[in-house]
């Protein structure tokens, strides 16, 4: 029981996502940060307001962190389909020792 809880907590902290999710996260992070940078410069330049540019840049980055870092469900929509474990077809579930089934 305690082990299960610990495992769940560790999984949550590690925040693993599947391979498709990793590709998506990489793309999203790059695109969002670049867009935020461009917007902050353009808005700052045309409104001649450097503080606004700073806040747009930092705010946009914070939002990007929020979107990319937690293991959101849309990063886990393509779980890896493992092959069935070899040996499950054999009837014997026990452990073979010296040709004899034990346990």
């Amino acid at each position: 029981m305690a082990d299960q809880l610990l495992d769940q907590a560790r999984e949550l902290a590690e925040g693993q996502i599947d391979f498709e999710g990793q590709k998506l996260a990489e793309l999203l992070a790059t695109a969002l940060l670049a867009t935020v940078g461009a917007i902050s410069f353009i808005v700052g330049f045309f409104l001649q307001d450097i503080k606004l540019a700073l806040y747009i840049g930092l705010g946009g980055t914070a939002l990007t962190f929020l979107l990319i870092v937690p293991p959101w469900p849309f990063f886990n929509r393509h779980p890896v389909k493992w092959l069935p474990v070899a040996g499950t077809e054999t009837k014997s579930q026990g452990i073979l020792v010296d040709g004899q089934v034990v346990g």
């Binding site: 590690e14 996502i17 999710g21 992070a29 940060l33 940078g37 840049g57 980055t61 990319i68 870092v69």
Partner: peptide, 23 residues
Amino acid sequence: MHSSVVRIQNVFGFFTTVAFVVA
């Protein structure tokens, strides 16, 4: 990008690049 820590590092790393370019 498989775990949260790696994603934090990646996002922060690219953020510094963007901040430098905008500056």
